[in-house]
């Protein structure tokens, strides 16, 4: 039996793609393998680790807990879409670089998307709020210390210059 394919429109990082996927294709797999946007990583496939977090209409969601066929109505942003318009690193990315906020880099895309949305909601978090902001994402390398520092640094970088 051939599995039927569904034509799905996926709008990712401002680019509209048309893909034909089986109903069961996870959004994470569609992004990674159908669109070849491999920056979104899969660490657990049960929604706990947060590596696969993408922005769905600006809000962080687990792409492993969504089906590609359910994602056609949304604007999706992945790590590949976080750079500034001129191609330089976005503020959250830049902050991670400055603060050594990553080691192996596998969980990093999920943190970057989560923090990007978090700083929209709370542009000047305290250290405690920064810790809360990233509390749904697992990292096995950094012990989170430098990720918290990166959140605070990113807030500085994003703040309008006086």
């Amino acid at each position: 039996m051939t599995e039927p394919l569904h034509d799905v429109r996926l709008s990712v990082n401002g680019v509209v793609h048309q893909v034909a996927v089986p109903a069961r294709r996870l959004l994470s797999d569609a992004l990674r393998h159908d669109l070849r946007l491999t920056g979104t990583h899969v660490g657990c496939e049960h929604g706990v680790c947060g590596s696969c977090t993408v922005l769905v209409d600006g809000r962080p969601m687990r792409s492993c807990l969504m089906l590609a066929v359910s994602a056609s109505d949304y604007e999706i942003t992945t790590v590949e879409g976080l750079a500034d318009e001129d191609g330089s690193l976005g503020p959250v990315q830049q902050a991670f670089k400055e603060c050594h906020g990553l080691q192996c880099g596998f969980c990093t895309p999920g943190f970057l998307t989560t923090i990007t949305a978090g700083l929209e909601e709370n542009p000047s978090p305290t250290a405690e709020e920064a810790r809360e902001m990233i509390a749904g994402n697992l990292c096995r390398c950094t012990g989170y210390q430098n990720i918290v520092a990166s959140v605070l640094r990113a807030a500085e970088l994003k703040a309008p210059q006086p």
Binding site: R24, L26, E45, H46, G47, R62, S70, D73
Partner: peptide, 24 residues
Amino acid sequence: GGQSLIPLLSMRLAAPGMLVDING
């Protein structure tokens, strides 16, 4: 929302023949 259902599907602890997506 699928936040409980999809992990069950992925672990194959649930295998319904059809999903009715009410998100639309």
